[in-house]
Measured scan of single mutants.
Amino acid sequence: TELRLDINGREIKVDGADKETLKELLKLAEKNNDEKAIRIIRHLLER
């Protein structure tokens, strides 16, 4: 399955993203107070 998050109005594919990319996405999600995106990205970073 493909995991996509809508961050800042942009749909971004997050599964398969490297750790650096995920960290950047996490910063974006935190800036937007997007709890769902934050939770998902943190979960991916823990893998």
Rank of each mutant, 00 (worst) to 15 (best):
E2R: 03
L25V: 04
K19R: 13
L45I: 09
N32E: 14
R47K: 14
E35G: 07
A17P: 03
R42H: 11
G16M: 14
K36C: 05
D34M: 04
I12M: 06
D6Q: 15
E35F: 11
I38G: 03
D6G: 03
D6T: 15
A17W: 09
R42G: 05
I41A: 00
D18E: 04
L45V: 03
R39H: 10
E46R: 06
V14S: 02
L25N: 01
R47M: 15
D34R: 01
E46F: 10
I38C: 14
A29F: 06
R10K: 14
L22M: 04
I38P: 00
N32W: 15
H43N: 09
R47D: 15
I7W: 06
K27W: 08
N8S: 06
E46Y: 10
D18H: 04
D15M: 06
A37D: 01
A37L: 08
E24W: 10
I41F: 02
K31H: 10
K23A: 07
D34P: 00
A17L: 12
E30G: 04
L28T: 05
E2K: 04
N8H: 03
L28F: 07
K31G: 08
E46A: 09
A37E: 01
K19G: 06
G9A: 02
A37H: 02
G9L: 04
N33H: 11
N32D: 11
T1Y: 11
E35T: 12
K27N: 09
D6H: 15
I41Q: 00
E30T: 09
R4Y: 14
I12Y: 15
L3H: 11
D34Y: 04
R42D: 02
R42A: 07
D34N: 07
T1C: 13
K23M: 07
L26M: 08
L22K: 00
L44Y: 14
K23D: 05
E2V: 06
D15P: 04
I38H: 02
L45M: 05
E46W: 05
T21V: 08
T21L: 07
E2Y: 07
L22F: 02
E46P: 02
A37W: 04
H43C: 07
E35W: 12
R4T: 15
R10T: 15
I7Q: 02
A17C: 05
K23E: 09
K27A: 11
I38Y: 06
K36A: 11
L22E: 00
I7L: 12
K19I: 14
E20M: 05
R47S: 15
L45W: 02
K23T: 08
K23F: 06
R10Q: 15
A17I: 07
E24A: 13
E11F: 09
E20G: 08
E24P: 01
D18C: 04
R39C: 11
E20L: 04
N33T: 05
T1F: 12
T1M: 08
T1S: 13
G16Q: 12
I38A: 11
L22Y: 01
N33F: 10
E20T: 08
E24M: 14
L26W: 03
V14C: 03
D6R: 12
H43V: 12
L26T: 00
I38F: 04
K19V: 13
A17T: 13
L5T: 02
D18I: 03
H43S: 09
K31T: 08
L25W: 08
G16C: 07
H43E: 14
I7E: 03
N32C: 06
K23S: 08
A29V: 05
R42P: 00
G9Q: 03
D15A: 08
N32K: 05
A17D: 13
D15R: 05
K19F: 06
R47C: 06
I38L: 06
L25Q: 01
E24H: 11
E11L: 09
D6C: 10
A17Y: 07
N33W: 07
K36N: 12
E30W: 08
R39S: 12
A17S: 14
V14Q: 01
R4W: 15
R39G: 08
E35D: 10
R39I: 10
I41N: 00
H43M: 14
T21D: 03
L45E: 01
E35V: 13
I38W: 04
L26S: 01
E20S: 07
R4G: 06
N32S: 14
E20P: 05
L5S: 02
L5N: 02
V14T: 03
R10W: 14
E30Y: 12
D18M: 04
L25G: 01
D34T: 02
A17M: 09
L45C: 03
I40V: 09
E11N: 06
K13Y: 15
I40P: 00
N33Y: 07
L26C: 02
D34H: 03
I40N: 03
G9H: 04
D34G: 01
V14E: 02
T21S: 11
L45D: 00
E35A: 11
R42K: 14
K27E: 11
D6K: 12
N33V: 05
I7K: 02
N8K: 04
D34E: 06
N32H: 14
E20C: 07
E2N: 06
L28A: 06
A29H: 01
R42N: 11
K36I: 11
K13H: 12
N33Q: 09
D15V: 06
L45F: 03
I12C: 04
I41Y: 02
A37N: 07
L44W: 15
N8T: 03
E2D: 12
I40C: 05
L3I: 14
E30K: 11
E35Y: 12
D6L: 14
D15C: 06
R4E: 10
A29N: 00
L26H: 01
R4H: 13
G9W: 06
E46T: 08
D18W: 02
E30A: 07
D15T: 08
L45R: 00
R47N: 14
E24R: 11
L26V: 02
V14L: 10
E2H: 08
A17K: 10
K27M: 11
G16L: 14
D34K: 01
T21E: 07
E30D: 05
I40W: 05
R47I: 14
H43F: 13
L25R: 01
L44H: 10
G16A: 15
A29S: 03
R42W: 09
E20I: 07
R47H: 15
N32V: 14
H43Y: 14
E30L: 14
D15I: 07
R4Q: 11
H43I: 14
R4C: 07
G9C: 05
L25F: 06
K19W: 04
R47E: 15
R47W: 15
D6I: 15
K19A: 09
K36Y: 12
E24I: 13
L22I: 03
R4P: 05
E20F: 07
A29G: 01
G16R: 13
D18T: 06
V14W: 04
I12R: 01
